[in-house]
Design a protein around this nucleic acid. Structure first.
Lengths: 227, 227
DNA sequence: AAATGTATGTTGGAAATCCAACATGGAGGG
DNA sequence: CCCTCCATGTTGGATTTCCAACATACATTT
């Protein structure tokens, strides 16, 4: 556990809690460290949802099975990231998703109630953690809203432009690199890869943007590059 | 305000707070009651996001309008329901959505900071409210995920069926009433109203479902009606 | 009854997407 | 260098959606 103190300090859940207090907290929280392999389930769909997980090393992904039995990767979580918090906080009886290892690694598993229930004595940090949880979930909410805003556009071009503009805004520059290759971007935007490529070509020919692989530059934004 | 005590008791934000304590709380929170008409904005896009709203009567919906006049209904909120909490908790400067009345009604508007900042004295219920907020945001999170799951389908038919099945699941019956008219359902699913109507007609002719206005029955689910 | 308004269903042509297939071009290995 | 692999770009025809317009049904008002 000692090896993971640095990761935990970066974790939003422990934001504002001093390193030396962290140890006391961890004792109070009574978590356990679970090792996982690539492809191994940490939380299983239809299982209980009482626990929150923090990735300590390696990576996990949240996988959803839809009506047709197709699997969709909802999200990927890296060290310092949380998983399962929404389900535990919402108090669902059965998890609708599976959390599985993408690589071998370890995760800290904490019973949510140990975070939210104010304990008697020393660790006065429960409130802080609850507020941190609030912030994490609100941020996640916004992210989902933004994705909805993008994917609810009707045409490939509109979705692409909405995405690129949000990326430019995030990078505070009209030149930026996106974290997707073409196929992944198409999946994200809910469009065809070929239609996406075609649209990018069209926008390039129209002088709206320049692009090379995952590197994009939006033109005609009435500035040289910085936003 | 007194008239709405019953609604507030049902509100997840005040869960676990006794009726007589509610009055003291409300004083401490310093909310105001806003009346709204059908189509009137309660919160406007690009405006500040410091407030949380509770629907007291009538109904509101959270909408995103884009440049082309296409609109997406993110959600509809009935009496006792909250709106705006995620944006306030995340501390965004400008709201990315509009909240408007679906029918005439009233809403209680509370400054978020009055909920999260523990006050000096009497009202020891802030902790409880923060926990309630946590639960509400988690629930909204799940809901947004579900909506993404539905709208990320490619065809009108798939979106419609995914939606109807989720509604059936929620109602625990293959016969249920949806809270949208055709235009609103189209906006929710991000499709054309006419294409939606056509698809419903097709599904009806194929014997997949029966429908009359907002009342649907899914057939061929290997059961008489109850799920 | 007539007029009006609203919700839903239907239809036809324009436009966009989807899908499959192939073209291109760079990276890396033999 | 040649070859393969893989990401990306391109293209054409089948399919679907989009849009505008009109049809139908029902409720309300005058």
């Amino acid at each position: 556990m000692r090896d993971f103190i640095e990761v935990l300090q970066k974790c939003a859940l422990f934001d504002g809690i001093a390193p030396r207090d962290l140890n006391a907290m961890l004792g109070c929280l009574g978590g356990r460290v679970a090792a996982f392999e690539r492809g191994e389930s940490i939380f299983s769909a239809h299982g209980p949802a009482e626990d929150v997980g923090v990735v300590l090393s390696g990576a996990v992904q949240i996988v959803m099975d839809d009506f047709d039995g197709n699997r969709t990767i909802q999200d990927r979580v890296e060290p310092g990231g949380l998983f399962g918090e929404a389900f535990a906080c919402a108090g669902v009886e059965r998890l609708p998703v599976t959390v599985e290892g993408v690589t071998p690694g370890r995760a800290l598993i904490i019973r949510l109630i140990r975070i939210t229930a104010t304990c008697s004595s020393a660790c006065a940090f429960h409130n802080r953690m609850v507020m941190n949880l609030l912030r994490v979930m609100a941020a996640r909410n916004l992210q989902l809203s933004r994705k909805l805003e993008i994917t609810s556009r009707r045409t490939t071009r509109e979705k692409l432009m909405a995405y690129l503009m949000s990326q430019a805004q995030e990078a505070r520059s009209s030149r930026f690199t996106i974290p997707f290759d073409r196929q992944a971007l198409a999946d994200y935007l809910c469009v065809e890869r070929s239609a996406l490529s075609a649209e990018i070509g069209r926008l390039r020919r129209e002088g709206v943007l320049e692009s090379e692989r995952s590197r994009f530059t939006l033109l005609g934004l009435e500035n040289g590059g910085e936003l």
